[in-house]
Design a protein around this nucleic acid. Sequence first.
DNA 1: CACGATTACATCGTGCACGATTTAACTATC
DNA 2: GATAGTTAAATCGTGCACGATGTAATCGTG
Lengths: 150, 150
Amino acid sequence: MAKDAAPDVGLNDLICFAIYSANHAFNRVYRPLLAALGLTYPQYLVMVLLWAEDGLRVGDLGARLALESNTLTPLLKRLEALGHIARIRDAADERQVRVTLTAQGASLRERARDIPPCILDASGLTIEDLMQLKTRIAALRDRLDQHAAA
Amino acid sequence: MAKDAAPDVGLNDLICFAIYSANHAFNRVYRPLLAALGLTYPQYLVMVLLWAEDGLRVGDLGARLALESNTLTPLLKRLEALGHIARIRDAADERQVRVTLTAQGASLRERARDIPPCILDASGLTIEDLMQLKTRIAALRDRLDQHAAA
DNA sequence: CACGATTACATCGTGCACGATTTAACTATC
DNA sequence: GATAGTTAAATCGTGCACGATGTAATCGTG
């Protein structure tokens, strides 16, 4: 018998599993859409950031994505090899690497514009419901991050 | 100017990013808890399934976790090497591999019992709010999976 | 019973994700 | 202006995740 204070839980009782499996489900929906652009999902997230603000440093990207250079450096090298970005050391502070869009990388933006509507459609929700859910999940994430930092 | 039908979106407008980053945040909270048991997060999910129902086949685990044998086989071999499970081919159908808990794997269950309360605490939400959020996320996941299958 | 099709699992290659460490550049203090 | 400390990226090793493919066992049909 389980103790009163800590009964057993099944997989589907765990919110972390809902998040984990929803993340995989998103990947499965994105994969064919992004394959048409030759991007992986994390590469797409980097491009979304650069389309909004070009010339970010590796550390800026890392702060926004909650990723470290050990993940970003190889990913950015692949984006560079694909011709979408350039990685150049900042002249004023050579420790820093600025990531800038090439013309090709900038033009990819147009081809990516119809992806969000596709995702909205696949979700089967209204924008309002989706935004509300997004807000709650982001708040949960922030509290978890806050807890993990302590 | 963006076209009316498909304006640009920032990273934080994307629900997929909320899910993606919440998944990472869960991992960061789980990691130290699971490190005490010597498990990774996906390994923990497998153990949760086996604690609820011992003797599942590789395919059963895959169906519940939405993972294929290419992910599960190495993971299960690591759990076997750790002494938590045994992998034995079914005598009636030698294509199938049954995964059973060892005494050590079964005993790990007791040490894992206080993990869910820790997660609940880290989330900063009530059980009711968390379960409601979980239900919505699971419903979204199911619609995405349904869309990806088609 | 034979044999093509199907099924279950394993294998291989690529790309994240992350802890730990390293390297190079900058800053602060003396 | 030497040097200790700090910072930004890069590097390395391990473990998921997954598309593509391989292999062996089983099933279905003639």
